[in-house]
């Protein structure tokens, strides 16, 4: 889901950089833990490592290949701070794996960050009256599915405004269905394991302790 160099029009490239910068500022302002930010650095860098390595896990689908991204899990574990993890991991993937492109870095980062934030806010719903406490695993799956769809929608919108046909969105969604399923199940499993112990790992629950 990394858009390569040279596919986007200059206006879309500029919009991507502006959007990702705005998202970075928004996330830093919105996170309530600016004071103990340094305490969260190990956590952020570990999630970044997971995001970084996940793009090596590819599944061949039809004529192309799709890979894991784990933005949904990053959103659940890091909350608004996941935007930082996403940006760092994308830069490292670009430098070390040649994934994506320098000009499209802004747009890719914006898509991934929006996806992570979607997962974060959706997963917060588990505290509302609508959902039972035990439904967090289903909500984790839904959050990841929604995050992936947001990512695809962002990328296909960017491609559409650069002259690609609108059908790109549909074909991208189709090839990403296995990823949605696999990533959703894996994230739900990780969330179940992490929520069983006494130590808290989920973003909002850390905030409750602070």
């Amino acid at each position: 889901m990394h858009i390569a160099d040279g596919l986007l029009e200059p206006e879309v490239v500029a919009a991507g950089f502006a959007l990702s910068a705005a998202l970075a500022v928004y996330s830093l302002k919105n996170s309530q833990d600016r004071e103990n930010f340094s305490a969260l650095v190990p956590r952020i860098s570990m999630v970044t490592a997971a995001l970084f390595i996940s793009s090596l896990l590819n599944i061949p689908v039809g004529p192309t290949t799709v890979h894991f991204s784990f933005v949904g899990l990053a959103g659940i574990l890091l909350g608004p701070l996941s935007v930082l993890a996403v940006i760092v991991s994308l830069i490292m993937q670009l430098l070390l794996f040649n994934h994506g492109g320098f000009s499209t870095l802004g747009m890719n980062a914006a898509n991934f960050a929006l996806a992570a934030l979607t997962a974060h806010y959706l997963f917060q719903l588990r505290r509302s009256q609508l959902f039972r406490q035990s439904w967090h695993k289903y909500l984790a799956f839904l959050a990841v599915a929604a995050a992936t769809l947001v990512k695809i929608a962002g990328a296909s919108l960017a491609l559409y405004y650069s002259g690609f046909p609108a059908g790109v969105g549909l074909s991208l969604t189709a090839v990403h269905l296995p990823i949605i399923l696999a990533e959703g199940l894996l994230t739900a499993a990780v969330v179940i394991i992490l929520m069983k112990g006494k130590r808290v790992f989920i973003y909002e629950e850390i905030q409750d302790l602070v």
Binding site: P42, R43, V47, T48, I53, L57, L77, L186, I193, L194
Partner: peptide
Amino acid sequence: SAAGIFPGLLLLLILA
């Protein structure tokens, strides 16, 4: 074994 470490480590191990 996972409690002492950071949450990403678990997933990272599987992925790596």
